[in-house]
Structures are given as structure tokens and as C-alpha cells.
Amino acid sequence: MASPPLVELSDVRKSFATHEVLRGVSLALAKGTTLAVMGGSGAGKTVLLRIVDGLVQPDSGRVSLFGTRIERLREEQILPLRRRAGFVFQGAALFDSLSVFENIAFPLREHSAMSLGEITDRVHRFLSLVGLPGTDDLLPAELSGGMRKRVGIARALVTEPEVVFFDEPTAGLDPTNARLVAELIAELRKGVCDTAIVVTHDIEFAELVADQMAILHQGRFADIGTPAEMHRSENPDVRKFLAGELRAS
């Protein structure tokens, strides 16, 4: 029997003031799948990702994380579910008063009974994984944009979560750093975490890391499928998006 989806959304709607961002979004993310949610700026991709992790409440619809309905749970009730997931923010959202080491160690110190030695070993393993060994004592202000992103990824992965949510992991990076981050995420799929939702507007990056793609347009998914299926799609919005001609509503 197929395992139940780790993330499931059904007819989710969300408005801010009079602007309806999501107009009935549904999706199911099975274990072992990386889904790239794509769309233009302002299409609602980040809002969707935040709803999936319970950081934003939808106006209506159902949201399940690890099989538990979360859309009306209180903050304290969602916390145990969030500990099983990782979230990489677009701007990395590192704690600016903590060093790189302390940022990555933060989830371990909060949620595990590991000794200092075990925490140190784990942090160093993930710093090496993201290609930043020896940066323990640096503060976030001393890092470049690409380094901050990679520290953010290490922090999200250090607890070895069951699913990771990436919000625009390559946005604002130069091509070299964007490529490094893309290769890192592709590499992670083989080891640390095989299930993820990646929000991006970068088609090349999505094709590199995802085995499912979904295009968000006018508050709904225009289409969902494998990269190959999307390229064959007859949907006019999909074709326009892939051709770089789709305008946000």
C-alpha cells in the first residue's frame, strides 16, 4: 500500500486585505518526491510554502502535515510537527547575534539531548556538507549572500528532517553560487533528505532538483507534472511560463 502523503493541501484559499493570493490550491507530496512550485513574482509561492509549514493560516481549505490537519491548530500544537520539517528562508533568516556554529547548533540545543561534543560533530558535518568548513565563528553579517543561504540550508537540515521546504534558494545569487546551491540540493536528495518542496522561478534550477513541477498562476496551479510532462503540456499558461511570457495577475 502506498504511504500517505507527507504534505497535503485541499482547496486552500488565502487573501490579504482585498487581494486574493491563493484561490483553491490542492496538492499532495509523497515521500521521496521533490516538488518545484514555480510562478512569477507575487504569484503566491511563498505564501503557499508558509501555509504548508503552518506559519500562515489559510482562510479556508484543508492543510495536512505528516497526516495531521494543521490549519486550525494553535501555534504550540503545530511545533512538534514543524520539528520534523526543515524550512530554508529566501533571505536565510539567520539569527544575527549568533555565530555560524550557534545558528546551526540552535535546533539541536533546543530539541535534542545531545552532548556538546555530539553537537559540535554534527554541526561540522553539515558545515562541510554545504561547503563551509572553518566558518564556525563568523557572524551572519560577515558572510556573503551565497554563504548565508548555505548556512540557512545547513540549519534546516541539521536535525535530519523528513521534509524540507526551500523558499527561493537561488534568488539573488550570482550564477556560480546559484549553481552551487542547486547542486547541493540535488545532492541532498540522495542522502540527508529525499522529500522537499522548492519554491522558485528559475526553470533551469527546478529541472535540476525536482521530479515534479507545479506552476502557480492566478492563485491556482495551472498544471502539475514531471519536467518532461510540463514541457509537453498544452496548457497555454504553462507554455507561456516556460517561454518567459507569463505575466502575474
Binding site: R50, D53, L55, E75, E76, L79, P80, L81, R82, R83, A85, G86, F87, F89, G91, A93, L94, F95, D96, F106, P107, E110, H111, R155, A156
Partner: peptide
């Protein structure tokens, strides 16, 4: 404004 509180929430820490 720098999303550090959201980061704390996403890590599963009770920010209150």
C-alpha cells in the same frame, strides 16, 4: 522584519 522570529517558529521553537 528580518524573519528571525519566523525562523524560530519554523525550527519548532515556541517563540512566546
Amino acid at each position: 522584519v528580518t524573519e528571525q522570529i519566523d525562523a524560530m517558529r519554523a525550527i519548532g521553537v515556541n517563540y512566546v
